[in-house]
Simulated scan of single mutants.
Amino acid sequence: MQVGIALLRYLADPALRARGTAATNKVESSNGYSKWLGFGGVLADNDPVGQEKLIKFNTLLANLVVFHNALDVSDIVRDLIAEGWQITADQLGQIAPHLRAHISRFGAYATDDLHRQPNPFDPLLKEVDFTEVGLAA
């Protein structure tokens, strides 16, 4: 009976359907991004341990690239704000973390820059007012 009530509520409430669709689209976007990044492995046999490793490594790779993208976007937003641009939380909410244009999956990678220390991680964009946006769903 509970499933029927939930289904009727879903059918009757456009806002609930929109929220469900948005969440589904985000998951599918993330899955597509992971698949796009995962060019190095093929699930060629029925070895469950190998399959699990491949999936976990691909998920780790996707998470690392999304994290790197978030750091780059944060740096760019800070630079724009320093130049006088007004950036809102709503505008930041429109940026997807699944950026691809800067990734050279099959290109040459230099490792001669590995000795440089990265800047410290600053997770807060103190310059942007997030109080207007309801971040909890």
Rank of each mutant, 00 (worst) to 15 (best):
H68Q: 15
F121I: 15
T88N: 01
E52V: 00
P120A: 14
V77Q: 04
K56L: 08
S29C: 04
T111A: 03
T59M: 05
A136C: 03
D45Q: 05
H98G: 00
R9P: 03
I95T: 09
S29V: 07
V128S: 04
L64G: 06
R116Y: 13
T131K: 06
G107C: 08
A110C: 12
F130L: 04
Q2A: 14
A6R: 12
L135I: 11
T24D: 03
Q117T: 15
V27W: 06
V65R: 02
Q94V: 03
G20D: 13
T111G: 15
H68F: 03
G40V: 00
K26Q: 15
G41H: 02
G134E: 01
L125K: 07
L8N: 09
I103G: 02
D113T: 10
N46E: 13
N58D: 00
F130M: 05
R100E: 13
L37F: 03
L7D: 11
G32D: 04
E28A: 14
P97H: 07
L135F: 10
L125T: 03
L125Y: 02
D13A: 08
Q2D: 15
L61F: 03
N63F: 05
D112I: 12
W85E: 15
E127S: 06
G107D: 12
D13I: 05
P123M: 09
P118R: 07
G4V: 07
L124W: 00
L99V: 06
E52M: 08
V128H: 04
T88R: 10
Y109S: 06
K26E: 10
G93T: 02
L124A: 08
D72S: 13
K35F: 11
I5V: 15
A22G: 06
T88W: 09
G40D: 12
A101H: 07
A23T: 02
L61M: 08
L64I: 06
T24K: 09
F106N: 12
N58T: 14
F130C: 01
S34Q: 12
L43A: 11
A22V: 04
G32R: 14
A44K: 06
P118H: 08
P123I: 04
L43H: 10
A12T: 04
L124S: 06
L7M: 10
L124N: 05
D113H: 15
E28T: 12
I95N: 05
P14G: 09
G134Q: 13
F57E: 13
A110G: 10
S30Q: 10
S29E: 15
P118F: 05
L64D: 12
K26Y: 08
T24H: 04
V65K: 09
V27A: 07
R100N: 03
L114H: 10
R116Q: 13
